[in-house]
Amino acid sequence: MKILVCISHVPDTTSKINFTENNTQFDPNGVQFIINPNDEFGLTRAMWFKEKQGATVDVVTVGEVAVEPTLRKALAIGADAAIRINMTPQDGFSVAQQLAKVVQDGNYDLVIAGRESIDYNGGMVPGMMAELIGANFVNNCISLTIQDNSVIAEREIDGGKETLTTKLPLIIGGQKGLVEESDLRIPNMRGIMMARQKPLNVIDPIDAITKSSTKSFEKPESKGAVTLVDKDNLDQLINLLHNEAKVI
């Protein structure tokens, strides 16, 4: 089985988000970048398929040279090879077209992406890729088992979960549940050394259609001060929630 894990390179979850140039550009200054958390769960599940079922695992990112440390980290975790499509991501649709080309050229059986990236939160790349290629697609995937061509997947639904049977080739939008938090791997010294020897192929983007672009950003309005209620006067809290906030 050939697996491709799509990795989005995103600001660390502790980052404060700032903008420059009159709020038209995201400011990467002082921001640490990480593997998108949903993709890290997927990559870790891919390692399981590699170790238990002999799969090969490649990772891919659409991005400029600045994303390479993130790809090296994925190699250090255990991926076999990395691909970087050399361009600044424009919108979800154009990224999906770039990735779809890699999936088709590489004849991948399984493509693991995340349910959403925590930067632009599009939640669109994996599904669009699936539709472009004509592959099966399971979103919000929280469990995945594969025997030969047959797939049993679970997806999170509002208030529960659903079990699906389907076939390869398959693309998933993965998330926590694919593996547990405690299964995530921190690259060790040996992994980091080995990652330096592994291939990181830089390829040129294809011509793709872009349909959307973010023109500017806004920060949420800052909040007024909290109204404190004495713990011995909870009637006041109920009163405030009922009469002032009107939520109960």
Binding site: Y120, K211, T214, F217, E218, K219
Partner: peptide
């Protein structure tokens, strides 16, 4: 132009759809 949340609710983006 539509306003949408980005960076998981840490900001809003004004996005143009073409």
């Amino acid at each position: 132009l539509v306003k949408r949340t980005v960076f998981t609710n840490k900001a809003f983006g004004i996005t143009e759809l073409n």
